[in-house]
Write a protein that binds this DNA or RNA. Structure first.
Lengths: 139, 139
DNA sequence: GTGCATCCTCAGGTAACATGAGGATCAAGC
DNA sequence: GCTTGATCCTCATGTTACCTGAGGATGCAC
């Protein structure tokens, strides 16, 4: 069950083959073995590491973040506090993103309503949606 | 007051100089005049167009979207319904993004709590945040 | 006339992979 | 043994929306 191909490693870690190679290029994996024919050989520890990276990326961490997290996880006594701090910092980033999204949604809704009211049955010269899009204000 | 340099155009449209040139390269601006010394010359219509593009980008539309929007706006009788449809479609995208952010935030919060509870006073071998990050589950 | 700011045109970098070229190898079926 | 299709390899380029820098010309103030 050990000694998997890159295709199997990709499937079992939830990555694409290209992504697995990319993570290796980025130095996120420990030395990957090669068979005599030159093909990469993966074991379960590699699969777990790939899943870790994949999950961190899904959580929105950058490759650089993951490098740091792996460094913390690889340490003799993992620095959980550093990991928690990165998580907390990332939560703050997510909240900012959500606030921006909320603002954008309100702007777009009022924009769309401009058209809904003026053009209930079709195009109307009274619709100002195009001009509104060009307005200077920031919403 | 007309005949502005690219620097002035950038300042008045809320873009950087590089971005103004980029939008021109992307074909989002109508033909920009040149002075005898080869420098670009902008008028107010160009500034308005730049603001339009900038605002659309801030609203999250891609350059391709903006191209479509400009096409609609440039038409003899602007197709406001097409513009509204793009706005509505974009609102849907924003809502999906927000849902993902909410999920990520919950994951990260429970992750951080793992550490908060186990390591109130410092690192603790009881903290599972590092292993939790590597967990397979997606929720 | 001496600087410094601004402008010009390429060219290459950024993030995180995806895609494709061109070629080798493997496993299955006949 | 041979063909066929899937998988693998490396290397190069594409994607998005710009940013940064090289190398050089110009404009404006003192």
């Amino acid at each position: 069950m050990a000694d998997m191909s890159i295709g199997q490693a990709a499937e079992r870690s939830g990555c694409t083959v290209a992504t697995v190679r990319h993570y290796e290029d980025e130095g996120l994996l420990k030395a990957i073995g090669r068979a005599s024919n030159g093909r990469r050989v993966y074991g379960w520890p590699d699969i777990h590491r790939l899943r870790f990276v994949r999950r961190c990326r899904d959580l929105g961490f950058s490759i650089g973040d993951v490098r740091t997290l792996l460094g913390a996880a690889d340490a003799p006594s993992p620095d959980c506090l550093a990991v928690r701090d990165m998580a907390v910092a990332h939560i703050d980033r997510l909240r900012l993103m959500r606030a921006e999204i909320d603002t954008l949604e309100r702007s777009l809704l009022s924009l769309a309503n401009t058209c809904n009211e003026a053009c209930a049955t079709g195009r109307s010269p009274a619709c100002t949606i195009v001009e509104d899009l060009g307005a200077t204000a920031s919403g």
